[in-house]
């Protein structure tokens, strides 16, 4: 068994004797629409305006339940690290919306 294990890497790495032809062709795809569905609520417009240029709403909606402070830390990271062009007055609106919308989601958070 041990011998087998030692031999295998050599086997899988054995290259082809003569490199086969590799042909590349132009390629394109159409990705599905991103419908930007967010539950209604105060601040939803601020979330759509400030957050969804970079990512779908599911990124936010699928997080475990977070405190207002944790949401603020996340929004701040998006603004400072990932350069999300979030208008400063919108920050409390976004944080309040995300904290509130989680109150209506399934399940309980553990922290």
């Amino acid at each position: 068994m041990r011998a087998l294990i030692l031999i295998l890497p050599a086997l899988v790495l054995t290259g082809c004797e003569r490199a086969p032809m590799v042909i590349f062709a132009d390629s394109s795809i159409t990705l599905p629409d991103d419908p930007l569905d967010l539950p209604p609520g105060a601040g939803v417009d601020a979330v759509i305006a400030n957050c969804t240029a970079c990512h779908s709403p599911s990124t936010m909606l699928q997080q475990p339940r977070l405190s207002r402070e944790q949401w603020l830390a996340t929004v701040t990271k998006m603004r400072e690290v990932y350069k999300a062009p979030i208008n400063e007055p919108d920050i409390p609106l976004i944080v309040d919306y995300l904290a509130a919308v989680q109150q209506g989601t399934e399940g309980q958070a553990e922290r």
Partner: peptide, 12 residues
């Protein structure tokens, strides 16, 4: 319904 599921809104 009211409240709703995060995942459901991502799956319209």
């Amino acid at each position: 319904g009211a409240g709703g599921l995060g995942a459901a809104f991502a799956a319209p």
